[in-house]
Nucleic acid binder design. Structure first.
Lengths: 340, 340
DNA sequence: CCGGCGACTGCAACCGAGTGCATCCCGGGG
DNA sequence: CCCCGGGATGCACTCGGTTGCAGTCGCCGG
């Protein structure tokens, strides 16, 4: 026999399907006699009964799934978040439907439609793109959602993001403690909120700590990539910038610095120290291992799941956002400057 | 109004719901008058009608989703496969439900049950674990499935896996062409099929090319990890093995070699060349960049999707397995040996 | 002894789409 | 002129569970 249905259970227990349904559902179990309920439950799992979520969903308009929209699963940032989300959902019996958008807004729209038509009850969106339109529309349609790593502007959505500003400050403080005074910043693209926030945090940290706040020590990368990082550092160096340390917008940009170091025979950390951001995997395998700011991706994921479940449970609940503390992972790419 | 239903469309088009259903479904469209069909279709998309897959699934027992079982999404091997799978599915209108098992067979069982209860039509299993029982049971239950990166023994399931033997041969040939004759192999654990296959391939390649087939040049790692790799290489070196190159069971093991090189002041590639396996991300950032065998993960994913769709379409079709050709990515960790 | 209340349980109508079968209508052939 | 055939469409039931409502029964108080 195929998987038994509710009616099979009911029949085997000698009750009506409706009663069996109520007995099996903890929320309605109170409506049926304790003994009957017990009997039904026993029969149910002796038969190996598993309720069919499809059928249940048809009536209740609930599917037990949420959609997770990710720009690029191969970006090492996202898998830990995805796992965190799964973990956060599973306790509530929900599961996650993951989709990739490849940062293409057409694909994103299509994927989201597909999720919605599959009756996901909510969305966790981890996009870096600055495209409001789709998100805003979904928000208006009343689709419960949570944003990860990005706060939408213009409308209220619960979001959960790393405390980038505090992270940058940790990096700068670390370098300052080592004795660095002329610290450069290779900022991420200004088209991303992260890039802007980190750059701003860098400047105020430098100012607060009384370090040399020389505008010629800052430049912006066109992309979050190694090439852009290398280009940016070359630009600084060729401009004659006098620096002993670099705070990179993220790890990839820091990796670009490594390329320039090799190119020009610069020793790291002896000549220049570098701090990255994100703590990608395998950073400890580099020569030298990269000091970086670690983001608790997994926790961010579980928290996102929690927020979404809350929003699904009570759509009127005011949107609440969470800022996650970061930590500095000190490795071999930072040391005291060689010269004063 | 919420998303329109089939009945809304039917009413708006002035026909019965059944007719609308037939008109909208390409397979049954021939049963209805061409003009009626056209009209229904026009009304449907002017209303923005999207069939509800839940309802459809209830009747047809088809959900348009397949389950993808992955041991660990944070292992960089899997995300590209997952993307490939999604790509392969989307053309057919299917989507993927991803789950992590964390290599825990209890979790795996629970996750698979959850997938099954969500009416997935098939499973793509990318597990390294050697636990037949669950898989065999599913196979008996007639659940369509495809295995990735592993061939089950004992029963017939379509599987799709990289041609490890050919990959190892490429590596050995590359080293031989550079002039190496005493090549070591740090094999992966013998508990994994991959470990065994690669080791066997290594030996036959060495023999076929007439290189020094010294058994003291081979050893086995306890795990697929850097630590195990380092331990293994130390064992070889301490045993006085005379070698000029290493073929590592995978990239992590190769990374372990790097640690030993630093430890003992060995220059790579001047003193010893190393070849990895898998082409993990960011290998090109290492010092020196690691030469490795690349696996076309994405293609493997799309192919897995295709096989599964085939199996779903025709469950009686004999199981067919695919071996994927690999390629060698030559970087800086291999060079001609310093001495003969 | 009867009315009534409350605890259980059964009935039946859904949810939204798919589908076997009956029906209807129209044209053509006998 | 009638009947037959077949294309087009509608009816009604089904998938598996949920749920409002109604009915049953036992028990208590008046």
């Amino acid at each position: 026999m195929q998987t038994p249905t509710l009616r099979d259970v009911a029949e085997a227990a000698g009750v009506h399907a409706a009663t069996a349904s109520r007995a099996l559902n903890p929320a309605t179990r109170g409506l049926v006699n304790v003994d009957t309920a017990r009997r039904v439950i026993k029969v149910a799992d002796s038969l190996g009964y598993r309720p069919n979520p499809i059928a249940r969903g048809l009536k209740t308009a609930r599917s037990g799934t949420v959609g997770v929209v990710i720009p690029d699963l191969t970006n090492p940032l996202f898998p830990p978040i995805a796992r965190g989300i799964e973990r956060g959902l599973e306790a509530a019996g929900y599961s996650a439907l993951l989709v990739n958008t490849d940062n293409d807004s057409g694909r994103e729209r299509a994927q989201v439609e597909s999720l919605l038509s599959r009756q996901v009850e909510g969305l966790i969106v981890a996009t870096a793109l600055v495209e409001h339109p789709l998100l805003e529309e979904l928000h208006r349609r009343g689709v419960p959602m949570v944003m990860v790593h990005r706060r939408p502007d213009g409308f209220e959505v619960p979001s959960i993001l790393p405390d980038d500003a505090a992270g940058v400050r940790l990096a700068v403080e670390h370098l300052a403690a080592l004795g660095h005074r002329r610290i450069a910043h290779l900022a991420g693209p200004t088209t991303t909120s992260t890039g802007v926030v980190r750059a701003r945090a860098f400047h105020s940290a430098v100012r607060d700590l009384g370090l040399d706040a020389d505008p010629s020590l800052t430049t912006t990368c066109a992309l979050w990539s190694e090439e852009s990082g290398a280009v940016a550092l070359r630009r600084l160096l060729d401009g004659g910038a006098d620096l002993t340390a670099v705070v990179a917008g993220n790890d990839l940009i820091a990796l670009g610095c490594y390329d320039v170091f090799t190119e020009r025979g610069i020793e790291c950390p002896a000549d220049i120290s570098v701090v990255g951001f994100n703590d990608m995997p395998f950073l400890d395998k580099l020569r030298p291992p990269l000091t970086t700011v670690a983001i608790p991706h997994h926790e961010i994921g579980t928290e996102a799941a929690r927020l979404l479940l809350d929003a699904i449970g009570d759509p009127t609940r005011p949107s609440r956002s969470v800022l996650f503390p970061l930590s500095l992972v000190v490795r071999g790419s930072t040391a005291a400057p060689a010269r004063g």
